[in-house]
Amino acid sequence: MMTTGKSDTKIKVNGLSKVFQGRNGDVIALNNVDLEIKQNEFVCIVGPSGCGKSTLLNIIAGLEKKTSGSVLADDKEIEGPGEGRGVVFQQYALFPWKTVLKNVEFGLKLKGVDAVTRRKHAMEYLELVGLKEFAHSYPKELSGGMKQRVAIARAFAAEPEVLLMDEPFGALDAQTRAQLQEELLNIWDNKKKTCFFITHDVEEAVLLGQRVVIMSARPGRIKEVIDVDISYPRTQETKLDPRFVEIKNEIWSKVYQEYLAVKK
C-alpha cells in the first residue's frame, strides 16, 4: 500500500467503457478510456458536446454505473458516491429550503459533525467565497454567480479530497466567471485538493488546469492530454502570456477538428 508510485495517483481510470441502452439502440458514451489523475492535481477536460465528459465525471463520482473497465480512487474500486469525492453541478443544485449556511453545512451534518463546529467551518468557507453576509439568505435571494459560489463552498466544506466539477461556470457572465476562476484557483492552492474540471471553454481549461484532456467525439475516448507548463498563481493576466496563447490555440484547433468530426 505504501509504494511511492501508487500513493501519488488519486484517480485511476482503466479501459473504462459506458454504454447507454436507449430506445433507438445503444449509445456508446465512453469507449476504452484511460486516465490518471495525481494527488493535488488540477485536470481540465474539454471536448465536443455529447462526447461523454459528464458521463466520465458521473462515473468517477459514483453516480453512474460503468459498463466495463475499472475506476479506482485511492486504489479502491469506486462503488458509489463517497465522502472523498465532492461534486459541483452545473445547475448549482442548492437545496432551496435551506439557507446558504445550512446548505454549506449539510455535508458536515451528514457526517455527524456537531452543530457548533460545522457552523464555524461553514462560515469559514463562506468567507472564502465572499458570501459571509448572505449566510442566512435563501438561494432564491441570490444571483446565479452567488449560487454557484455557495455550491462551491458546499462541496469544499465537506472536505473531500477530490473535487469533480461539471461546467460549474457555464451559465455565468464573463466577469463573474473570471472572478470565480481566480477564487477557485485560490481555494485549490490553499486547501490542496485534486480537481477534475469539465468545461466547454478552452481558455478556461488552460487557465485552470495543469493538464488538459481533450476528448474526441463519439464514441467518447481520450484523444490527447496536454501539459500546461505555466506556473501558478495564474490570474486573468496570464491569458496574455504568449505561452498561454500558444497552448490555447493548439488545444483549440484540436477541439475544433473534433467538432468538425461531429458535424460530419
Binding site: 458516491p81 465522502e83 461534486v87 443544485a93 465537506a158
Partner: peptide, 18 residues
C-alpha cells in the same frame, strides 16, 4: 423532486434515509 438535488445529497454522503 429534482433528481440533481438527490444526487447533490448523495455525493455529500447522504444515505437513503437522509
Amino acid at each position: 423532486v429534482d433528481p440533481t438535488l438527490i444526487k447533490a445529497a448523495r455525493v455529500l454522503g447522504a444515505t437513503d434515509k437522509d
